[in-house]
Each structure stands twice: as structure tokens, then as C-alpha cells.
Design a protein around this nucleic acid. Structure first.
Lengths: 337, 337
DNA sequence: GAGCGCTCTTACAACGTTGTAAAAACGAAG
DNA sequence: CTTCGTTTTTACAACGTTGTAAGAGCGCTC
């Protein structure tokens, strides 16, 4: 008892049958006499048997585990305090739980770390990878595909490659922000974009600009941010210096929008009276901000769940061609615009 | 190539030696002729061999994986948006990475889920558990100890039991807040406590009250919150209704402190001029809040890393008696008090 | 009562690794 | 030229499970 855990062998001995029969009872396969089934079941009870997952994995070639990889995001482990990743994690965990699959958390913020991730998957420690990557130049997606590892990406890959992904219509999101600000009668509208090497940032900006142009505003003052609060404040500062009469700002995520709000307030400007601010994501900062942020909602949890679904599906029936699922954004109107 | 991954057998065949020799080269054991070592190494290169981790685990009885369990926290998966858990995750991941150990994320928010966690560990899917639990009545710690699973807790267990844990001197933290407010000349001081069934909440409150009493304030108006923004706002509302002349508030975490600040501002009160507010944790809301929060810093990342360290140590040499590591808080003075 | 088709059960060989005991190689010493 | 240590290598048995092919039991029919 104290040393080795009870094994199939032990249960078989107690029940007076062979290992294979016990195995079939445990796995619910047909063709076991009900009476004998009961005997086995009570023997399991009696010995306190639990199937050894590692041994099972060795023969089934499945671990019941997937890697949740957060890649590219610069500064290492502070990504976990970004509400966006928290929502991704929540969505993934929530979905996987029901399928009895467990996520192992991996950070791929260096070339060394990326190699480790690929090794980990190739070693069969996990059945596949869920990859959340921000940088479009991230080499990890390509390396995983190359290594033949089942993978699903959050966001379209930088270069086209045969891999499944979920994404959102970021252009539509940008368009919604523009439409709302123009409809509210704003005329001096600027924007704080995300990092321009991130496809999602490009799309949000492009969608915003296109819609603005359609409304008769051919040029939109733009400052590039880095999706962090600091960068958002700095970008707002630059915009304000160059365009003091700005009366509306669209920021490419809530963290930057919140920082912009605070910076504008520090300059004595009232939100939304003097300047309207729209964020993007609808994550916790949108609610924590005063005034609360009007924002373009990205259904992160649903997207994360869809990502997990696509991965499990591809594990179930391998050899299918990659799929993509695109979500629609939604404008959430609160107090800031 | 396409089907089965290369195995030790394959490498051995190519190198013209036995499996055991290859194994010894891979694991860096002594007693392999340097020349042969080179041959084997190039055979590994040539075949693209990667050791199968599952097979290895089966014989070594170690998986190189630990469970990171978030337990008790009521509402399910929205815990991941709580900056506190983000910091715990960051600290754990950061430390484990260097040891080549990977964390599996698990939520234990129901009795069913708790059983699954225990099963998971008993099945040998992970070598041990890192348990972050808030509720003192959480049955999971006891069940893990009972099952003989190596585990380390974040925070002292509700009932005494033989298990290692890391914690902070919450009383000292409460004391620091009281000292600071009194030194600033505040006289109508109230507090928003955390849930009173959480030991950490009790300690913060007790430390605060003791210090207040020592400063000549025998009674401190108290409202109980639930560590969420909503509960913090509601608690502040109650305090304000009953003690309209309050001029300082100590909240048991930053999320509630931030909500208190916003609620006071909504009532036309200025922070810190009319009311001083102190938070607890020094997590991201402390910086996001306007004015930025004065707060009692809890070194969460360090504590999480220490937790991981204790677990790995106990896996290394089993049978040691449990250990505890207690951290000291630190007052971070910003604008709110 | 031999032969046939069922259903249910059992041996046995994987899966890919590690650890151990035995064998081989090789010098050095007697 | 044996004999005895070392070192290096090998064969083989684990580890705990699953899947498959063979076997046992049993009621039929002819």
C-alpha cells in the first residue's frame, strides 16, 4: 500500500480474473459478464486502484494533455498580468475541462524556449499545441507545422501556412469605432494603433481608416503604441502635443485606452465631454476605468474555446485540412464615448 | 519517418550498438568510449531522434510536470482575470522553466473537480501539486495530504496539517497600513476587510485593528468585502452611509481599494485630500487607479517561486518534514494616502 | 455425440525507456 | 601464457497498460 500504487495485476488477482478483463471493465468495453463486472468493480474499490496514466499513454500514444503556448510576447512572464491572456486561459481551461484534457502552460519568449516547446511536443509530452502569438514574425508556428505537431493558432499566422486558426474580423472592429465616433459628431478624430508588425493591429487600423475615409476624413492622426499602458499614455501625449484640438481617440486596446483617458484627465480634459475615447477588447480595464470605456468587444473566451475545439477535433481525426473560424466584434457602448 | 518517431532501437541500429549504450549517451552517464560516443551522437543527429518522455516516465516514475491548482475560488474560470493569480502563475512558470519542469493548470472549483485533481495526481500524471487556495474550509489540501501527494500550499492551511506552505505576515501588513494612516493625521479611519473565512483576511484585519488600538483607536468601523471590485464598492457605500465623516480607508486588496476610490470620487470626495485610501497587494490595479494607490506590497511572484522551490525540493528528497517560508510585506507609498 | 457458431475470457506481445547482471574486451601483473 | 582487475558493452527483465489472437465454455443442430 504505502509503496507502489495498486496495479491492474493486483486488481486481477483480487478479483480472480486476468488483467485484460479488468482493463476492459475499466475502459467500459463490451463483452464482460455483468456478474463478473461487479466482482471486478468491487475489487477495484477494495484495492483503491487508479489506472496509471503514463502506462496508458505509452500504448495509446495519447497523453490527454495539450500545450498552451504563449509566444513572442516580449517581456517574459509579465504577460500573465495582461488581462487578455487571462481571458484566453479562462476560455481554454473552461473548454478543455469538459473533455478531460489538461493544458500545460509554456512560455516561448526566446529562441531557446521555442526549441524547448518543439521538443516537448515531439517527445509526445502533449498531444498538440494551442499557440497564442502576437508577433507576426514569430518563427514558432512554422516550426511546429514543420515538425508535424498538431497545432491551432490564435490569430492568423504572419505568413500563410497550412495550420488551423481562429481570429476575429479586426477591420470590422475598427470600422465600428469610426462609425460610432463620427455618428456622435466628433470631427477631430485620432487613433492610437497597436504595434504595426502585428497583423491584428494593422487590420484594426486599416478598418478604422477606411471607414473614416468613407465618412469624409481622408487623414487620421496616428500614434503607434505597444499594447501596454505605458505606451498608450506616451502615444496620447504625442497626439495631444501635435493635435491639441483632438476631440476623439480610438485606441487599439483597452489598456492603452485607459492610459489615454488618465493622461487626458491629467491635462484637465473631461471624458467624454471634451474628448471621447474608444477602446478595444472589452477586458477588465474597460470596466475598471473611470469613466467606463466604450469599447469594441472581442469574444476572447469564445475564441479560445473554439481554438481548443479545433485542436481536439484534429486530434480525433487526423489528416484533415486546416480550418479557420472568424468571429465578429461587437460595439459595447459605455460612458467614455 | 512520417509514421512512428525514431526510437532508441533505430538509433542503436544506425550506430551499430545496443539500446543501452545509446541510452547512456543520451543521459550522459559515464563509461562510454569517447569515440563511440561520437558515433552515437551522429546517429542521433542523423535519425532526428528525440527521447520519448512517456516511456521514460514509466520507468523513472517521474513526469517532469507539476499541477498548478487554483482551488476554492468561487466563480469558476474568471479567476484568471484576477491579477493576483496572474502574478502567481508568472512566479511559478518563471521558476519552473529553469528546472525544466512544466506546470499543468487545473481549476478545483467544485467537489467533482477536486476529485479529478486528486485522481490526476494519484495516477502519476504529475509529480506534485502547487495549491493556491483562498477558502480556509477548502477540503482539497487535506485530501491531497491524505492521498500522500507531494504538495505545497500558498497560504497556511485552514486546519493544521503536515504540509509545506509559503505565506506572508499579513498582520504586519495590516499594522503598516494603520501606522501610515495615523502618522498622516487621519482620525476617522475605517476598513474594508476581505472575506472573514479566509485566514489572510482575518490576519490583515487583526493586525490593522491591533495597531489602531495601540494608537488609541479602540474601535474601527469595518465592512466585509469579497476581494472583488463590486464587493469593494458596495462595502465603501455602506461605510460611507454609516460614517459620512470617514477620512481614511484601508482595503484588504487593491481591487477593492480601487473600487472604493471610484465610489468616493463619485460622491464628490477627493482622494487623498478628503479621504486617504490604502490598498493591499500592489498588483496592477494599484498602478491603473487614479490617483495611484498607496498599498501594502505582497511579493507574490517571489512567494510563488518559493512554493515551486519547496515542491521540487521535496520531490528530490522525499520523506522530509514539511517546511514553511514566511515573507515580509512592504509599504509602497503612492498618491492615494 | 461430433460439429458449429456464439459469447466471454485469457495468454501474450507490444509501447520505448531504464537499470541490472552478465559477458566481452583489454591491459597489466604474476 | 595464464590469471585477474578494469572498463566498456550487451542482453534481458522490468514499468503498467492496451489490443489481438487464441482458447474455453456452452447451447444448438444434424
Amino acid at each position: 500500500m504505502s509503496k507502489g500504487a495498486p496495479t491492474l495485476e493486483d486488481v486481477a488477482r483480487v478479483a480472480g480474473v486476468s488483467r485484460a478483463t479488468v482493463s476492459r471493465v475499466v475502459n467500459g468495453t463490451r463483452n464482460v459478464d455483468p456478474e463478473l463486472q461487479e466482482t471486478v468493480r468491487s475489487a477495484i474499490e477494495q484495492t483503491g486502484y487508479t489506472p496509471n496514466r503514463v502506462a496508458r499513454s505509452l500504448v495509446t500514444r495519447r497523453t490527454g494533455t495539450v500545450a498552451l503556448v504563449i509566444s513572442g510576447a516580449g517581456g517574459g512572464s509579465d504577460v500573465f498580468t495582461d488581462p487578455f491572456f487571462g481571458r484566453v486561459t479562462a476560455g481554454v481551461v473552461d473548454f478543455l475541462r469538459a473533455q478531460r484534457v489538461h493544458p500545460v502552460l509554456m512560455l516561448a519568449d526566446s529562441d531557446h524556449a521555442r526549441t524547448e516547446v518543439v521538443e516537448f511536443l515531439r517527445q509526445g509530452s502533449a498531444d498538440g499545441a494551442l499557440l497564442v502569438t502576437t508577433h507576426s514574425a514569430d518563427p514558432l508556428p512554422a516550426r511546429l507545422v514543420e515538425a508535424g505537431v498538431p497545432a491551432v493558432l490564435y490569430a492568423r499566422p504572419g505568413r500563410p501556412m497550412p495550420v488551423s486558426y481562429v481570429d476575429m474580423d479586426h477591420r470590422a472592429g475598427g470600422r465600428m469605432a469610426a462609425d460610432h465616433l463620427v455618428a456622435a459628431g466628433r470631427t477631430n478624430i485620432a487613433t492610437i494603433s497597436g504595434p504595426l508588425d502585428v497583423p491584428a493591429s494593422q487590420d484594426r487600423l486599416a478598418g478604422f481608416r477606411d471607414a473614416m475615409a468613407r465618412h469624409g476624413f481622408p487623414y487620421v492622426p496616428t500614434a503607434e503604441g505597444g499594447f501596454t499602458a505605458e505606451s498608450g499614455g506616451a502615444a496620447m501625449e504625442r497626439l495631444l502635443a501635435e493635435y491639441p484640438d483632438v476631440d476623439a481617440v480610438f485606441a487599439a486596446n483597452d489598456l492603452m485606452a485607459q492610459a489615454a483617458v488618465y493622461l487626458l484627465q491629467a491635462h484637465g480634459l473631461r471624458i467624454p465631454d471634451d474628448v471621447a475615447v474608444i477602446g478595444f477588447d472589452d477586458s477588465s480595464p474597460a470596466l475598471a476605468c473611470r469613466p467606463q470605456l466604450t469599447t469594441v468587444r472581442q469574444p476572447v473566451e469564445d475564441m479560445a474555446a473554439a481554438m481548443a475545439y479545433l485542436l481536439l477535433e484534429s486530434l480525433e481525426k487526423p489528416g484533415q485540412r486546416p480550418k479557420s473560424v472568424i468571429f465578429e466584434p461587437e460595439l459595447v457602448v459605455r460612458a467614455s464615448a
